[in-house]
């Protein structure tokens, strides 16, 4: 009988990276490359750019692992925040007008690939998709435009032809609702080590 293998937690991997353990970095990459790369492709709409940014992210993890504070959140949250921040910085180098114009187009192409990639849907993805489906369209759309297209609140207002105050309120309400829904999902297993 094989002894049960105990998987190293993400926090342990972060501590090992602080001690300059390359294998820990490789293990962290193997765990999250697929989700982070998918996120970056969705933001940048380019595999090449996304691979470039993904490399930058993990080099930053190597250099700044000591900045991670486990009392403030999970390594997964830290990684996603880091990756998204880098991706948004990259896309904001494009002219603002181009970004606003392209925002819808990116969303449409993603919808097509979504249908093809249903087989890859994970349990966590299902929970998030279910939670988002429960948000009214008027709340979900500003969240998506901010999260995946890097638009600011005033850019979203211009894109949706809606007053800025309305956009701010809808974003806040949508995010609050999403937090409640995901918190409910946590008890059903949502989350990471």
């Amino acid at each position: 009988m094989q002894p049960e293998q105990v998987q190293t937690t993400d926090v342990d991997l972060m501590k090992a990276i602080v001690r300059q353990d390359e294998r820990a970095l490789a293990e962290l990459y193997d765990r999250y490359r697929v989700i982070l790369f998918g996120l970056l492709v969705r933001i940048l709409n380019s595999r090449e750019e996304a691979e470039d940014v993904l490399q930058e992210v993990f080099l930053q993890v190597w250099r700044r692992a000591a900045d991670f504070d486990e009392t403030r959140g999970r390594p997964f949250t830290w990684l996603v925040t880091l990756a998204r921040s880098r991706g948004i910085d990259r896309i904001r180098n494009l002219a603002a007008r181009d970004r606003v114009a392209q925002a819808g187009a990116r969303e449409e192409s993603e919808q097509v690939s979504d249908a093809v990639a249903d087989a890859f849907r994970s349990e966590q993805r299902g929970l998030v998709t279910t939670a988002l489906a429960q948000l009214p369209e008027e709340q979900m759309r500003p969240l998506m435009l901010a999260y995946f297209d890097g638009l600011t609140q005033s850019e979203i207002a211009a894109k949706l032809n809606a007053p800025l105050g309305t956009v701010k309120t809808r974003m806040r309400s949508g995010l609050m609702k999403l937090r409640e829904l995901l918190a409910d999902s946590k008890s059903a297993g949502f989350g990471f080590q």
């Binding site: 989700i35 998918g38 996120l39 595999r47 998204r84 993603e110 999260y147 995010l175 999403l178």
Partner: peptide, 18 residues
């Protein structure tokens, strides 16, 4: 809030890098 927004990453299609 960042813990909540991190979950939105799952909305993107998971993809394998080179």
């Amino acid at each position: 809030w960042q813990s909540t927004t991190a979950g939105l990453a799952f909305e993107a299609t998971p993809l394998e890098p080179s």
